[in-house]
C-alpha cells in the first residue's frame, strides 16, 4: 500500500534506535507489511455500497432540512424580537395611555348611593380590580428598564393612593 511516510521510516527508526537495530526493525516492518498486502481483506458487497450511498443521501437530506428549519425558526424569532423592540420604542408615553385613570371605573352611582352594604361590595370589587391592575403595572415596571415607564408606574401608584384616600373620605 502506498505510504507517504514510509520513505522516512528508516530515518524515523534511527531517531529511537541504533543503526543495526533500526535496520532490523525496518526489515521486520517491511516484511510484515508485505504480508498484509498479500492478504487483502474482503471488499464490501455492491449491495452494501448501494445501501450506504442511499443512507448518505438520506442523511444529507435530513441535515439540509434541519438547517432550513433552524434558519426559518431563527428568522421568525428575530422578527418577533424586532417587533417587540420596535413596539416598545414607538409606544406613546405612559401618561397618555388610555385606561391609566382609575376614576373612570368607579360609577358615579357609588358616590351618590346611601346603601352602605351594597356599596361595600362594589368597593371591594373595585379595590380588587385596582389591586390587579397595580400588580400588572408592577410586572410591567419590573420588565421595562426605561425611566419613562418607571415614572408612569410611579404616577399610577400615586393615583391609586389618591383614589383609595377619596374612598376613605366618602365613608
Amino acid at each position: 500500500m502506498k505510504d507517504p511516510a514510509r520513505e522516512n521510516l528508516a530515518k524515523l527508526l534511527r531517531q529511537f534506535m541504533d543503526d543495526s537495530a533500526a535496520c532490523s526493525a525496518e526489515a521486520d516492518v517491511n516484511v510484515a507489511e508485505r504480508i498484509l498486502e498479500t492478504h487483502p481483506a474482503p471488499l464490501p458487497s455492491p449491495e452494501m455500497v448501494s445501501t450506504i450511498k442511499a443512507l448518505m443521501i438520506a442523511s444529507a437530506a435530513r441535515r439540509h432540512r434541519r438547517i432550513r428549519i433552524f434558519r426559518v425558526a431563527a428568522a421568525a424569532a428575530a422578527t418577533v424580537v424586532l417587533t417587540v423592540l420596535i413596539g416598545r420604542y414607538n409606544a406613546p408615553p405612559a401618561t397618555n395611555r388610555p385606561g391609566v385613570s382609575f376614576a373612570s371605573i368607579i360609577p358615579a352611582a357609588v358616590w351618590d348611593s346611601d346603601d352602605l352594604a351594597a356599596d361595600d361590595l362594589d368597593l371591594a370589587y373595585f379595590t380588587s380590580q385596582i389591586r390587579q391592575i397595580e400588580a400588572q403595572m408592577r410586572a410591567v415596571e419590573a420588565e421595562e428598564t426605561e425611566t419613562r415607564c418607571t415614572d408612569s408606574v410611579g404616577e399610577l401608584e400615586l393615583e391609586l393612593i389618591a383614589i383609595e384616600t377619596e374612598f376613605g373620605k366618602g365613608w
Binding site: 464490501p44 452494501m48 445501501t51 450506504i52 448518505m56 442523511s59 441535515r63
Partner: peptide
Amino acid sequence: DELLSELFIKLVE
C-alpha cells in the same frame, strides 16, 4: 457492514 454504514453517515454529518 454496520460500522462502515455508521462511518459514512457520520462523514456526512
